[in-house]
Measured scan of single mutants.
Amino acid sequence: MATGGRRGAAAAPLLVAVAALLLGAAGHLYPGEVCPGMDIRNNLTRLHELENCSVIEGHLQILLMFKTRPEDFRDLSFPKLIMITDYLLLFRVYGLESLKDLFPNLTVIRGSRLFFNYALVIFEMVHLKELGLYNLMNITRGSVRIEKNNELCYLATIDWSRILDSVEDNYIVLNKDDNEECGDICPGTAKGKTNCPATVINGQFVERCWTHSHCQKVCPTICKSHGCTAEGLCCHSECLGNCSQPDDPTKCVACRNFYLDGRCVETCPPPYYHFQDWRCVNFSFCQDLHHKCKNSRRQGCHQYVIHNNKCIPECPSGYTMNSSNLLCTPCLGPCPKVCHLLEGEKTIDSVTSAQELRGCTVINGSLIINIRGGNNLAAELEANLGLIEEISGYLKIRRSYALVSLSFFRKLRLIRGETLEIGNYSFYALDNQNLRQLWDWSKHNLTITQGKLFFHYNPKLCLSEIHKMEEVSGTKGRQERNDIALKTNGDQASCENELLKFSYIRTSFDKI
Results as ranks from 00 to 15, higher is better:
120 L>E: 00
226 H>L: 11
192 G>C: 14
199 T>L: 11
87 Y>R: 00
233 L>D: 03
262 G>C: 02
46 R>P: 06
103 F>A: 01
222 I>P: 08
129 K>W: 04
75 D>P: 07
40 I>F: 05
222 I>L: 05
190 A>K: 06
235 C>Y: 00
102 L>S: 01
65 M>W: 02
302 H>C: 05
150 N>W: 06
196 C>N: 03
187 P>Q: 04
128 L>K: 00
52 N>V: 15
168 E>A: 09
54 S>E: 07
186 C>A: 11
106 L>F: 02
72 D>H: 03
87 Y>F: 03
232 G>P: 07
220 P>R: 04
84 I>R: 00
286 C>N: 01
162 R>A: 12
228 C>A: 02
126 V>T: 11
28 H>E: 07
205 F>T: 14
279 R>L: 12
115 F>M: 04
284 S>K: 03
138 N>I: 13
187 P>D: 08
155 L>P: 05
107 T>Q: 13
316 P>Q: 04
30 Y>R: 01
81 L>N: 00
298 R>A: 09
157 T>V: 06
58 G>T: 01
236 H>L: 01
159 D>P: 12
131 L>P: 01
130 E>P: 01
228 C>M: 02
49 E>D: 09
261 D>A: 09
280 C>D: 00
164 L>W: 04
295 N>S: 10
158 I>K: 04
288 D>H: 07
107 T>V: 06
298 R>V: 11
301 C>S: 06
46 R>T: 03
32 G>M: 09
211 T>N: 11
77 S>F: 15
189 T>N: 09
145 R>P: 01
38 M>L: 07
305 V>L: 05
277 D>W: 05
228 C>L: 02
313 P>T: 08
258 F>K: 02
56 I>P: 00
311 C>E: 03
328 C>H: 01
176 K>D: 14
44 L>C: 04
81 L>K: 00
197 P>G: 05
106 L>N: 02
76 L>N: 01
322 N>Y: 06
171 Y>S: 07
178 D>L: 13
67 K>N: 06
61 Q>K: 14
321 M>H: 15
175 N>A: 12
309 N>C: 03
90 L>K: 00
204 Q>W: 03
214 H>I: 07
277 D>T: 05
263 R>E: 14
236 H>F: 02
94 Y>F: 07
100 K>T: 07
85 T>P: 00
161 S>W: 04
85 T>D: 01
64 L>V: 09
48 H>V: 11
95 G>N: 06
56 I>K: 00
122 I>C: 06
121 V>L: 03
288 D>I: 06
310 K>V: 05
316 P>D: 09
242 N>W: 12
83 M>A: 03
107 T>W: 05
172 I>S: 13
264 C>H: 00
203 G>Q: 08
165 D>F: 14
30 Y>I: 01
285 F>P: 01
258 F>I: 02
203 G>C: 05
135 N>R: 07
143 S>G: 08
157 T>I: 09
246 P>Y: 05
41 R>W: 10
128 L>I: 08
243 C>A: 00
32 G>W: 05
198 A>H: 14
327 L>V: 03
238 E>P: 01
292 K>L: 12
228 C>E: 03
213 S>V: 10
159 D>H: 13
268 C>P: 00
33 E>M: 14
138 N>P: 01
140 T>Y: 07
202 N>R: 05
124 E>V: 02
139 I>C: 02
336 P>L: 07
85 T>S: 06
206 V>I: 04
122 I>Q: 01
211 T>L: 13
164 L>H: 09
155 L>N: 13
297 R>N: 08
223 C>H: 03
104 P>A: 01
137 M>T: 09
233 L>N: 14
308 N>L: 10
237 S>E: 14
230 A>Q: 15
329 T>E: 01
46 R>A: 13
95 G>R: 04
102 L>V: 13
118 Y>R: 02
55 V>A: 04
157 T>P: 08
181 E>T: 09
96 L>I: 05
86 D>C: 01
158 I>W: 04
177 D>C: 10
202 N>E: 08
300 G>P: 12
174 L>F: 05
151 E>S: 05
129 K>E: 14
232 G>L: 10
218 V>N: 09
115 F>T: 05
173 V>S: 08
306 I>S: 02
87 Y>V: 00
221 T>E: 15
193 K>M: 13
137 M>C: 12
173 V>T: 04
134 Y>A: 05
301 C>L: 05
90 L>H: 00
67 K>I: 12
142 G>M: 01
335 C>P: 08
323 S>F: 12
122 I>E: 01
292 K>C: 10
170 N>C: 08
216 Q>N: 07
294 K>A: 13
201 I>P: 15
322 N>K: 06
197 P>N: 13
236 H>R: 02
275 F>C: 02
152 L>G: 02
300 G>V: 10
284 S>M: 12
211 T>Q: 04
105 N>P: 00
162 R>P: 11
65 M>R: 02
268 C>S: 00
332 L>I: 06
317 S>W: 14
150 N>M: 06
124 E>C: 03
316 P>M: 04
183 G>R: 07
244 S>L: 05
187 P>R: 03
82 I>T: 08
255 C>F: 00
